[in-house]
Design a protein around this nucleic acid. Structure first.
Length: 654
RNA sequence: GCCGUUGUAGCUCAGGGGUAGAGCAUCGCAUUCGUAAUGCGAGGGUCGAAGGUUCAAAUCCUUUCAACGGCACCA
């Protein structure tokens, strides 16, 4: 065996080094400046410490601070530095885990006293000291039992548990920075100095140990870290900007809707908000009618016997609003119910069981399939208080729902048809960055594994055949079948599931739906649950944030305001408004006794996309001065031309 | 549901044991104005709710409700 190893560099050149040479050795052999700038090394594609000896032939890439992976390492190291700082300042705090995340890092601590944002300054100060100290991150491999004992002796029970649960095959790696050390799989930057000072602690939050709500609640500190101050400030600025796009803030400012305590989690839609709703509803109706859907309406309150049969009573009850099927007691000061209720109904949390009931009316033939049964279905879900989040997570929600009853042979065609519909719709709304997941069987599931195998394979096949990239989300499926999840991000980067498409082999069986096949025998239909918007509520929330409230003309609740400069133009302004309304536009009139500056400012804030401004001159000449949002231009046009042009611009895309 | 933070006028916020404040918004009057705030005046609050401490509570304490940030759960 030779003592030399061949290292292939990214430019294709091959150099020979003694076995055990490190990334740093290689960098030094290339240039002094590279060695100085190097922060990590990629060995055969695996990110590693610069100081790790390389034992065999390998492809090696030296990474500098400007590399994308560097940012992740800076954040991970910042988490370690924070953990040391916290343990120094708050003795007795146990460390648990602290990964890098998108835009930053966090560390979960176990401590009886919670941390407060007021502690941040002290922690950051201590972190800067540790960075300034510049200790090397030293990698050590420990014996498993020694490591467990070490951490237990230190009172670090969470760490000991982590080590105990690591697979036998895994090396127990410890990274040391000066006196402080932590269990970690690495890799790390050469020294704490490399973390830099472009970091900031952002918030404290509770988080369950190992993500399990039955386990202890830890305190998590979130921070962000960047290569330099400039990047950090840009990010903090971006956060501020994102706050301004928040649909809850814009919803109030634009007078779209409100919430109040008495109907927690349910929306009071104001005229303008509901105008947007109706535009969405009209649009999606046109789309699904073209695709051969029929529309139905089903009951809100349904006896629990149906929910028992469908499986919701067993698997979904904690999310349902249950209503005793009893006449309430009306005695003053008496109990609400004289006796403990024994019969129950429930507000529907989903539309599917009701749609199956419609399917089951009469006898269906294979010739009737597929049946695409749609409903703008209003559902109620008893969401945990902490889960509620404006329009994104409400207790009353309305899905643009449909269930497609089809044969197994039709699955491919129907799913494909649906994905084409999804693409058209999201394109029309300007949503181009959609993440697609295939969610597979959860633990709490109905149906046998063979059925699940079949369903999951069918769904993966369709996407593969259509050449659509997707990722798996193991365990995230509905209890009755696997599903596609289509996720969009909100203003502050949170991802929300919108569109969905779920295959279901279970419910038709449970509710005994059948059709007569070509062979004259009974068969089970397959059910495809799908929603394009998902829910109107969430779709609107994302829509508002996506456009920062500045909705495209066809969606704007008020498309144009006619604003007068002087009372002398009031009569003319009324005729302008009439022409706009006649052309089918959503128009309003502002003849208030205010200066035009004031009106322009106010309607701009209300995000009205177009203003027709009329004064004495326009009244005289039969024209309007047109002001588009965010434009300094004020072209003056003949009224008829202006209305026609605007009407064309306001046409829905479909 | 769990951890933390915050609740004062319609909105944004100041005040912090001794008579409840500002700006914007609202209403009235004046002004008739050319593209992001015209002037003057008036009205508006059980200080989230309940209980407690105190001569006195918006302020201190307890409980509770809600909102916000996470976690868990999910469209």
């Amino acid at each position: 065996m030779s003592n030399n190893i061949n290292i292939t560099l990214p430019d294709g050149s091959v150099r020979s080094y003694g076995a055990g040479a490190t990334g740093l050795d290689i960098a030094e052999s290339i240039s002094k400046s590279l060695a100085k700038a190097a922060i990590a090394v990629r060995i055969d594609g695996v990110l590693s410490d610069l100081s790790l000896p390389i034992t065999g032939d390998a492809k090696v890439e030296i990474l500098k601070r400007d590399h994308n992976d560097a940012l992740e390492m800076i954040r991970h190291d910042a988490a370690h530095v924070m953990a040391e700082a916290v343990q120094k300042l708050f003795p007795g705090t146990q460390v648990t885990i602290g990964p890098s995340i998108e835009n930053g890092f966090y560390y979960d601590f176990a401590r009886n006293e919670p941390f407060s944002p007021e502690d941040f300054e002290a922690i950051e100060k201590e972190m800067r000291k540790i960075v300034e100290r510049g200790d090397a991150f030293v990698r050590e491999v420990w014996d498993r039992n020694k490591a467990i004992k070490f951490f237990k002796d230190k009172g670090e029970y969470y760490k000991a548990e982590l080590i105990h649960d690591l697979p036998e095959t895994e090396e127990i790696k410890i990274y040391r920075q000066g006196e402080w050390l932590d269990l970690c799989r690495g890799p790390h930057l050469p020294t704490t100095k490399h973390v830099g000072t472009a970091f900031k602690l952002l918030k404290v939050a509770g988080a369950y140990w190992r993500g399990d709500s039955n386990k202890a609640m830890l305190t998590r500190i979130y921070g962000t870290a960047w290569r330099d101050e400039k990047e950090l400030n840009a990010y903090l600025h971006q956060l501020e900007e994102a706050e301004k796009r928040d649909h809850r803030k814009l919803g109030a400012e634009m007078d779209l809707y409100h919430f109040q305590h008495e109907a927690q989690g349910s929306v009071f839609w104001h005229p303008k908000g509901y105008a947007i709703w109706r535009i969405l509803e009209d649009y999606i109706r046109r789309r699904i009618q073209e695709d051969g859907y029929v529309e139905v309406k089903t009951p809100q309150l349904i006896d629990n016997k149906l929910w028992e049969a469908s499986g919701h009573w067993g698997k979904y009850r904690e999310n349902m609003f249950v209503v005793p099927d009893v006449v309430p007691n009306t005695e003053e000061g008496g109990k609400v119910f004289k006796e403990e209720p024994t019969r129950f109904m429930a507000l529907k949390p989903m539309n599917c069981p009701a749609h199956v009931q419609i399917f089951k009316q009469g006898i269906k033939s294979y010739r009737d399939l597929p049946i695409r049964m749609a409903e703008m279905g209003c559902c109620h879900r008893n969401e945990a208080h902490g889960a509620l989040h404006g329009l994104m997570r409400a207790r009353q929600l309305t899905q643009d729902d449909a269930h497609i009853f089809c044969t197994e042979d039709q699955i491919h065609g129907e799913v494909k048809k649906f994905i084409e519909l999804f693409r058209k719709v999201y394109d029309d709304f300007g949503f181009h960055d959609v993440k697609i997941l295939l969610a597979t069987r959860p633990e709490n599931k109905a149906g046998d594994d063979a059925t699940w195998d079949k369903a999951e394979k069918a769904m993966a096949d369709v996407l593969n055949e259509l050449g659509i990239a997707f990722e798996y989300a193991p365990g995230d499926g509905a209890f009755y079948g696997p599903k596609y999840e289509f996720h969009l991000r909100d203003a502050i980067g949170r991802s929300w599931q919108m569109c969905t498409c779920q295959l279901d082999f279970v419910l038709p069986e449970r509710l005994d739906a059948s059709y007569v096949g070509e062979d004259g025998k009974k068969h089970r239909p397959v059910m495809i649950h799908r929603a394009v918007f998902g829910t109107f509520e969430r779709f609107m929330g994302v829509l508002i944030e996506h456009y920062a409230g500045k909705l495209p003309l066809w969606l704007a609740p008020v498309q144009v305001v006619v604003a007068t400069i002087t009372g002398k133009a009031d009569d003319y302004a009324a005729t302008v408004l009439a022409s706009l309304k006649k052309a089918g536009l959503r128009a309003e009139l502002d003849t208030r006794n205010e200066k035009i500056n004031y009106k322009v400012r106010e309607h701009s804030h209300a995000k009205v996309p177009v203003m027709f401004i009329v004064g004495a001159r326009e009244a005289e000449e039969g024209t309007v001065a047109i002001r588009r949002m965010d434009s300094q231009d004020q072209p003056v046009e003949k009224l008829e031309n202006a209305v026609e042009t605007l009407a064309n611009l306001c046409k829905p895309p479909y």
